[in-house]
Structure formats: C-alpha cells, structure tokens
Amino acid sequence: MAQTMVSVQALRKHYTVHKRPPGLKAALGSLFRRVPTVVKAVDGISFEIGRGERVGFLGPNGAGKTTTLKVLAGLLHPSSGEVRVDGHVPQRREDAFLKKVTLVMGQKQQLLWDLPPSETFALNRAIYEVPEPEFQRTMADLTELLELGDLVNKPTRTLSLGERMKCELAAALIHRPQVLFLDEPTIGLDVSMQVVIRDFIKEYNERTGATLILTSHYMDDVAALCPRVVVIDRGLLSYDGALDELVRRIRPEKRLVLRLDGPVDRAALEAVGRVVSTDAAGVVLQVAQDAVNPAVSRALATLPVHDLTVENAPLEEVMSELFAQSRAARGEVEDAA
C-alpha cells in the first residue's frame, strides 16, 4: 500500500437514543420516563487507506458508512478508537486538517441558496486562503472538467439537481483537498449526470493524486470508481479488499448474457447453463467459472446467438449475498420482509 493517508483502529461510535412506541399513552409516558437505548452505529472497525487510493464504503442503510465518513471528516467524535487522517486527529478540527479534506454530501449543500454559486466559490477562496492566481487556475480547471459554463452566475435555487451537484463539487474542491469524502454524491441524479460526476471524480483523482473515499447505493458508482471496497454492516466490517475479489468470493459463477435471433426451448438453454432470466431483451445464464469456455462453445454451436457477453454477477446481488452471509455467521435471523 502507498503511504498511509487514513488510519482507523478499533473505531466505535455509539449513540444513546430514546425510544418510545407510537400513541398518546406512550407520548405522555415519555414526559416522565424515557427509555434510553444505545445504538452501535460503528462497533470496532479497523482499516487503513493509502495516499491516492479510491475506496468505496458499502453497506445497507444504517450500516455505519456515513457515520464512519463523518468521523473521518471530523464532524463526529468517536466513542472510542483511534482515527488519523494524514497524521491529524480529525475531531480536533485543526485548520491544517480542514484545509486538506472535503466532504460532499449528496443530501446536504454548502452553496448559498439565494446567491449564485460564484459567491460561494469566492467565500471559500477567502476562508481557505487560496491565492487569487491559484483560485483562477482551479476555477478554470473545474469549469472545464465539470462544464460549468454560465451556471456559476445563476442563483443556486434556480439550478437543477444535477447542475447544483456539479457546483457543489466545484465549491468543495476550490482549496484542492488531498482527501475527498463523498457521501452519495450522485443521489437523485439521472443516469447521464451520474456518469458526468463519476468521470469527473475519477479524473480529479488521477490528476491530483487525491485520496477518495466514497459511499453510494449506486453500485455503478462503486464499480466505476473504486478498485477497493470496505463493506460495513451493522457497524461491523464485513469485507475489506479488492472489488473483483469480493465478487469472485461471493458469486464465483459467471453470467452469459445472450441476445438471440429467435425463440429457443428452455431445455436447450439449460443444456448451456442455469437460466437466471429470459425476456425480450435476451437470456441470462449462470455457469461455473471453470465452465465458461465450454458453455460459450456450446451456446454458439446450439443456439441462434446474435450477441454474447460474459459478465460477473451484478454487484447488488453480490452485496445482498454478502450481507446475508454475514448475518447468518452472526446467528441473526434474516427478516423475511
């Protein structure tokens, strides 16, 4: 691994919340007696991330990904454990640390709502003490990469979600941070805008060598950006390693995706592999990894194949399987709902 940029050792973040059932009786009761419950948002995770790495944090809702990200960004104080980002203890929020990092949250914004984004850029230039020539250069780069054009001069409230996210990214990068924490940066965006944002993030990482830590529910984001993933589930680390390896480990089978020129008997398909799905768009078959070559040969020989691709199982399926395995290993009963 390259020089360590992020080091997390036995991180725990526990919250005390007060639970009460619905209804008037419970509401009145809670006036006099509240029942505290400890929520273990993060419960003892450890990992290290090297300088310039792109790492995806994966996990279901409430897994502890965003909490971990907020601890790394210095917003939350850990309950216990040790966290360092480029040698800094994040919760101390030293200026030198804050000038090295940025956190972009897809569901929160730093842009001033009633003013054009250019005003937020100017504000950040002053706060981060970016010299004017460097600011101009950075803005020129960001304008080109994100195709900002005239957007920066329109009031933020009039921008579309995608336009706003592009400006959010620009505002977050004016001080050229060395570590990018990205929490669902493409949430709610249409597919083409997701691609624009993804490409930009990758380009920024390659140009500047910045370290990138991303959480996203869109597996395409993770697949496109992160060679390494850290999987967190119920506050615990389920997996830390290469994305390819995770897929191989959880779903070693391959998928043959076929487009056929005409209808085919199910029996003929099953002679090639297990049928995962059939519809107008094509057929998906599953075969063991070491049986891919014979299966492809048989498909080409026996089926009216118009087009054939070999793919891994979708990441969503892999993740779902991983979480099920983790919970089974912990002896938890999967909620049928």
């Binding site: 001033l112 003013l115 100017a122 003490e129």
Partner: peptide, 25 residues
Amino acid sequence: MSLRSTVRALPTLFRIGFAEMVAYR
C-alpha cells in the same frame, strides 16, 4: 483559522453576508 487570516477574510465574508441580507430583504 488564525486571527490574522480571519481579519483578511472579513471583507469577503461581509460582502457576501450583505448580499445574502439583500436577497432576504
């Protein structure tokens, strides 16, 4: 942010703060 840096940033902060106030007139 040091006191010196804060003082240097103040003109921009006030300019933008005033622009916001005008927006919320």
